[in-house]
Amino acid sequence: MISVLNVRKYFKDVRAVDGVTLEFPKGTYTALLGPNGAGKTTLVEMIEGIQKPDSGEIRILGRGWARDERYLRRVLGIALQETNFIDKITVGETLDLFASFFGRGRDAAPRILDLIRLTEKRRSYVMNLSHGMRQRLSLGLALINDPELLILDEPTTGLDPNARREVWDILRDLRPRGTSLLLTTHYMEEAEALCDDIVIMDKGKVLARGTIGELAARYAAEAALVRRTRESRETSLDDIFVALTGRHLDE
């Protein structure tokens, strides 16, 4: 579905993405897990055709940004790490605006409102929404074109546990449709709760990849060393991260 081949992007002396090679198969939910500054946004925005790699190649559904931008814009659903909407435009109007960008009819917005559970707020100005509702609106815009592939950059950062769980529920509901998901996060619970495929990233590089089970098995010995100081008996993603980098995820 997506293939990333030896992609690099430097900002002056910062190696934001430093030679990443990854394949994302169709139908999987993949988490790109890493602390702040790991290069998640840079990588994901290169996949989304918003930033250009210094070198390397990115292909989505067998196509590249240089030649097939219009096609790729049509099939991708994305939510950026940060987007502010126009204060005095309502939720429904915002969704309908984006629906029209995709050539969708007036029926698209109500359907998405239902999906993101904002139907009651459709006449509210965006300025009057809570942070959680805004994140759901962002998610709704990503879903407005019924994309096969959904790319979300930190969809739940800054949300309280309830608001976070609401987003997770919406994403889980999409699974039966065969949607593929790539999401970035620095919450290991999020990666564990939603994704079967986890990519651990730090300082522009991919450190490890696999299911939770695979990662736990592969790094059991190292994680056990780390864990000795604590009471837990399970190997957590955080233990694995500490074993790989010597730091905690949220540091």
Binding site: E48, G49, R73, E82, T83, I86, F101, F102
Partner: peptide, 16 residues
């Protein structure tokens, strides 16, 4: 202002 809000890049990332 739309660019500052990062709404411009979001709109540009559609087939608009």
């Amino acid at each position: 202002e739309i660019r500052i809000k990062k709404l411009l890049r979001r709109m540009a990332a559609t087939p608009m």
